[in-house]
Design a protein around this nucleic acid. Sequence first.
DNA 1: ATGGTCGGTCTCCGA
Length: 259
Amino acid sequence: MKLATFNINGIKARIDALPAWLGASSPDVVCLQEIKSVDEAFPREVLEAMGYRVETHGQKGFNGVAILSKLPLSDIRRGLPGDDTDEQARWIEAVVEGPRPVRICGLYLPNGNPAPGPKYDYKLGWMARMKARVQDLLAGEEAFVCLGDYNVIPQSQDAARPETWLVDALYLPASREAYRQIVNLGLTDAVRTRQPGPGVYTFWDYQAGAWERNNGIRIDHLLLSPQAADRLEDAGVDKSVRGGDKPSDHVPVWVNLAA
DNA sequence: ATGGTCGGTCTCCGA
């Protein structure tokens, strides 16, 4: 089973590039971030025509997440638990049905800039809520994968120029500590396991020729529960998508799980 | 040495 995450930075702007990648890569399940669309305006028909079920959790203008799946979904949940006043659409969850089901949590973690400030406080609060959700899921001992745009550079090797990120919310010590606290509950970073060295990036800014200079960062991650990690076969980054027509600033990241 | 790019609209803000 091939699972992928892709921050598309606007579904309207990616209406050609997304189907092109789906056709070339044939993932079974994809979690999308930054659809920047309300549910009613999401162009589900073109994706359904490719064999995907479509579940969205959108909002106007910003944020928004979705699941595309060739396999049946159950227990679909929208929104990260822990704060009923949080109106930002950043979390969608479902169980992918099959002989060996796997729960997927698609997430768009807050950027948090500028830091310090209220946006950074929201980021850290959101990460604490995510940690609590992961703790609950771990207690269930099921296979699950938390995949999406984490907006966290875990280590210096995950940035081409780490020195330029020192005061950024994506790399501040408190951001990386909160991320480690989630991973250290017992999750496996699928891409790190398969490609342990430096130089693996998932985002290149549109500005300043970042792509041409390979000035990238790794912020899109797939974290596997122990039961999902048992089934890890392969993982990787579809870097070439960044060089295509009208690219997102992120590229797809994927994992293959047995059965 | 500096500034630079997108996307969705809220003709500015978020990233």
